[in-house]
Design a protein around this nucleic acid. Structure first.
Length: 269
DNA sequence: ATGCCTAATGGAATTAGA
C-alpha cells in the first residue's frame, strides 16, 4: 500500500499539479497538509471521481489537513488531543483496512514556530509561536505514546517542520537559530522518535543531500538549497511491514509546484 | 538582509510560510 505525505501549500493553487501527480504516482493514501481551505470549499469530487474517499480538517486561509484514500477510512478523528482551546487545524487520523492488517494513519502539520522568542533564561516566551510549537510537540508525544502502547501498525506522517540533523539541510549553518533546527526543537522530535518509532526514510537511506522542501526564494531549488522536514514515523508493527520510503524530489521542478514534495511510503498492509 | 517568492484575503496591502 502506497502512502504519501504531501504539503500542497493551498488546494486551490495546487489542484492541477496535485491531480497530475496522483494520476502518475497512484498512491493509495495521501496525507495532505496546508490545504488552506475550509471543509466546504475543498474540491472533494475531483478526488472522489478518481476513486478516493476524502476526509478533511480545514480552516480559513491557513493550515488545514486532509486524508485521501482509495480504501475506506474508519474512525476518523480531527484535532490533536490535549488542548481544547487550540483552534488550528493541524491533525487528522483514521484507520485504513489493508488486506492483511489494519493501520492507524495520522496526518499532521506541525507548527513552524518562527519567530523564536526566548526569555532571558532561555525558556520560550509564553503565548509566542515558538512556545506554541513546543507545546504542540508535547501533545504529539502524548499521542505517540498512546499509539505505541496499542502495539498495532500505526504511523504519523506529515510536515514536521523539523530538520532532524545537520545532514538534513544543505546549509545547516543558516538554520542554527531557526525554530526548525534549534536544539530544543530537535530534542523534542528525538524524544518522540526514541519512544520506539522508526523514521521511515532514514531507515532506508543514509547520508546528506536528501531534501523535501526548497524555498521559493533566491533560487533555492536551482541551487539545491533544501531541507528535509517531511517525515513518516512508524510503530514497530508498521516498520515490520515497510517495503520502501522515497522522496519524490523531481516534483519540485514541475509546473507551479508546491515548495514541498511528496514522500512516498510503501507498506505491505 | 524578518526576506530575494508564493498563497490567501479581498479587492490594496498585509499576514504567513520556513
Amino acid at each position: 500500500m502506497k502512502i504519501a505525505t504531501f504539503n500542497i501549500n493551498g488546494i486551490k493553487a495546487r489542484l492541477n499539479a496535485l491531480t497530475d501527480w496522483i494520476d502518475e504516482a497512484h498512491p493509495d493514501v495521501i496525507l495532505c497538509q496546508e490545504i488552506k481551505s475550509v471543509d466546504e470549499a475543498f474540491p472533494g469530487e475531483v478526488f472522489e471521481e478518481r476513486g478516493y474517499n476524502v476526509e478533511t480538517h480545514g480552516q480559513k486561509s491557513f493550515n488545514g489537513v486532509a486524508i485521501l484514500s482509495k480504501l475506506p477510512l474508519e474512525d476518523v478523528t480531527r484535532g490533536l488531543p490535549g488542548d481544547d482551546s487550540d483552534e488550528q487545524a493541524r491533525w487528522i487520523e483514521a484507520t485504513v483496512m489493508g488486506e492483511t492488517h489494519a493501520c492507524r494513519i495520522c496526518g499532521l502539520y506541525l507548527p513552524n514556530g518562527n519567530p523564536v522568542e526566548l526569555n532571558p533564561d532561555g525558556s520560550p516566551v509564553e503565548g509566542g509561536k515558538y512556545a506554541y510549537k513546543l507545546d504542540w510537540m508535547k501533545r504529539l508525544e502524548a499521542r505517540a505514546r498512546a499509539l505505541m502502547a496499542d502495539e498495532m501498525p500505526a504511523l504519523m506522517g506529515g510536515d514536521y517542520n523539523i530538520i532532524p540533523q545537520a545532514e538534513d539541510a544543505a546549509k545547516p549553518e543558516q538554520w542554527t537559530e531557526d525554530a526548525l533546527f534549534r536544539p530544543q526543537s530537535r530534542e523534542a522530535f528525538r524524544r518522540i522518535v526514541n519512544l520506539g518509532f522508526t523514521e521511515a526514510f532514514r531507515a532506508r537511506t543514509q547520508g546528506p543531500g536528501h531534501y523535501s522542501f526548497w524555498d521559493y526564494q533566491a533560487g533555492a531549488w536551482q541551487r539545491n538549497n533544501g531541507i528535509r522536514i517531511d517525515h513518516f514515523l512508524l510503530t514497530p508493527q508498521a516498520a515490520d511491514l515497510m517495503v520502501s520510503c522515497e522522496i519524490q524530489s523531481d516534483v519540485r521542478g514541475r509546473e507551479k509546484p508546491s515548495d514541498h514534495v511528496p514522500v512516498m511510503l510503501d507498506l505491505a498492509l
